[in-house]
Design a protein around this nucleic acid. Sequence first.
DNA 1: CCAATTACTGTAAACGTTTACATAATGGTA
DNA 2: TACCATTATGTAAACGTTTACAGTAATTGG
Lengths: 334, 334
Amino acid sequence: MSSIKDVARLAGVSIATVSRTLAEPEKVSEATQRKVQTAIRRSGYVRNELARSFRMQRTQTILVLLPDIGNPFYSLIVQGMEEIAQRYGFRILLGDMQNRAGGEAKYLQTVSQRQVDGVISLGSTLPAIPQRKGSARIPLIMACEYLHDDAVTSVSIDNVAAAQLATQHLLDHGHTRIAFINGPATTPLSKDRLLGYRRALKRAGLSGDKALIVRGDFSLASGERAARELLESKARFSAIFAASDAMAIGAIKELRARGKRVPHDISIVGFDDIEFAQYVEPPLTTIHQPRREIGRAAMQQMLSELGAPVKPMQRQLVLEHHLVARGSSVPPRQ
Amino acid sequence: MSSIKDVARLAGVSIATVSRTLAEPEKVSEATQRKVQTAIRRSGYVRNELARSFRMQRTQTILVLLPDIGNPFYSLIVQGMEEIAQRYGFRILLGDMQNRAGGEAKYLQTVSQRQVDGVISLGSTLPAIPQRKGSARIPLIMACEYLHDDAVTSVSIDNVAAAQLATQHLLDHGHTRIAFINGPATTPLSKDRLLGYRRALKRAGLSGDKALIVRGDFSLASGERAARELLESKARFSAIFAASDAMAIGAIKELRARGKRVPHDISIVGFDDIEFAQYVEPPLTTIHQPRREIGRAAMQQMLSELGAPVKPMQRQLVLEHHLVARGSSVPPRQ
DNA sequence: CCAATTACTGTAAACGTTTACATAATGGTA
DNA sequence: TACCATTATGTAAACGTTTACAGTAATTGG
C-alpha cells in the first residue's frame, strides 16, 4: 500500500503538504494541489484511516445501542441515522443488546477503548458510559426512550399523548373495559404510556381496573403471554391497547387460540406502526411513530455535539405522532 | 488517560514488558507480571485499541453486509455471528444495503481503508472487495447466498432440495396448479429454488406453467405485488409457494383483498421460518432455515481464515433445513 | 571453571498520520 | 529601500502501541 510518503515523493512535495491538500486544500496553492492530486491518482493512494483515527483520537463512528435487533421497529430508525451519519462522513456501529438488561456492557468497552466518538441508545436505561479522564466527555443521546432529566438529550414522541390518543380511540368506539399491555414497568416511556391510558379513562369518567393492566417486553411472544394472562384473570374486556405492534400481534394470536374473534369480540390497538401492522389480519390500528425522523434527529443532534456544522436542537426533542385507524378496532359487541 | 508509559513507570519496568505482560504473559516472570498488574489497576489503564489497531494493521472487526436491515430474517443470523465473534474478541460492523444493488459500495470504502479484517456478505452479489496491494487479501465469506464457484466460501442450506420439499408438500396435499413467487431472478439462490420447484413438479408428472412464476425481492410489499400479478394474469392456481415468509405474508394480504380465503381457497407455503410466520393468520407453513447456525458457521469460518484457533470447515458448507407444517397449507377445494 | 544455553528485560525503531513551528518567497506599503 | 504581512511550504515531533534486537543474569553441561 502506498502511503502519504509515496505521494509526497511522487509529487515532489513534503508529506505535510499532501496532508493539507486532503484536509485543508484552501491552504495549498492550486498548482501544488494539482501535482498532489495526480500523484494520488497515479499511486492509488488511499488514506489510512486507522492511522488517522489514532493520531486524531477520533473514529468518526457512533455506537448505536439496539435493544433487540430482531425487532423490526428499529430498522427505520437506524436507516434515518445512517442517512445523516453518511452525509457527514460518520459510520454507525450497531450494538444488539438482545433484549437483556446489561446487554450493552460489551459494547461500552469499545467506548472506553476510544473506538467510538459518541453513543446513541435506543434502550431505556442510561448506559454507564466510561468517560475518559482528561478528554472531552463522550456524548450520549437517547432515542425513543428518554429520562425525565434535562441533562440527558433525547428524541422521542409524546408518549402520554400518544397512549391517551390510542385509548381515546377505543373509548370513542364505545369500549369501556379496555385492557392495556404495557412495556417493561420501570421505564419513563412505559410510565408515560400508562399515564396516557389512565388519563383517557379518567376523562371518560371511568375508574379503570388494575386487573386489566399487564406487561410484556415489546416482543411477539410477550404479547401472547400477556393476552393469556388477561384471559385467565377472568377480568372482562372488549378491547386491548398494546404498547407495541409486536405485542398486539402476539395478543391476537392468543385471543384466536382461545376462540375470541378480532375485532368482532375484542378490538385491538397497537403502537409503533411497523410494516407488519398493515399485513396482519385484521390490519392493525396503531399509533404511528415517525421512526426515520427520530433516527435522523438523534443523529443530527449527536453530530452537532461533536462539532459538525449541523444546527443543534433543543435538549428534549418531541416529534409528532398520529393514529392510523385500520381494521382491528371496531365498536364492541352488544 | 493513562498510557502504557504510565503503567511502566508505576511498575518500574519498560513499556515493552508491560506490552508483553498483556499480550504474551508466558514470556514475563511471575513477579514482574504482578507488579505490572497492580500498576494497571492503580492507574486505571485501558489499552488504546486505536493505537493497537494502527500498529498491527488489524481491527478485530468483521464487516457484515446486510441486504435489508428491516427484514427480520437476518436478525438471528447476526446474533449467531455475534456470539462467535464475541468469543474470539472480534466485533461486527453491520452494513445495511437497503435492498439496493450497489448498496454495499459505501461500506467497501471502510475495507480499502483497512478498517475491517474481513467481510461476510448476506447479499447475492459478490462484493468487489478492494484488495490492498502488498498485504494479505481480505477474506470474504457468503452466508445464505452463494455462488456456484468453489473459490468462494459460503454457508447456506440446499436450496434446490428445500424448494423441492416445499413444493412437494403442496403436491402431497393434492395441489397441481402451484404458483411460485421467487426472489430476484439472477442469483444462484433463486435459480436453485426455481430448479427445486420445477423438479418437484416434474417428478409429479406435471409440466408447469410459466404464467405461474413471478418474482419479488423478499419483502412484504413485493409479495403483495406478486400476488396481484398472479391474480391478474388469470392463470388458475390453488396454492402458492413463496421464496420468503415476508412475501408469503404479503401475498396473503393481497389474496384476502381480492376475496380469496387462505388456506381454504389458496394454500400458501413460505420460506425462512421467521418469527412472524407463527403469528400470522393462518400460521405459515414454511421451510425452516437454521439461521443462528448459519451465522455461527460463517463467522467461525471467517475467524479460522484470519488465523484464530478455530477449526476450519469445508469451502461450501450446507446446513440442514426442514419443513414446518402449519395452517396455511391444506388440500385444495374440489 | 568456562562456554553455551535459557529466561527475562530493556532499547529503540516503526506504523502513517496531523500539526505546531520555522522558513522562504511574495507583494504591498511607508 | 527597508519593513511587515501574507501565503505557501517544509521540518520534525507526537500519538501509543508492538516487536526485532541487544543485553544481562542465571542456569546448565562438560
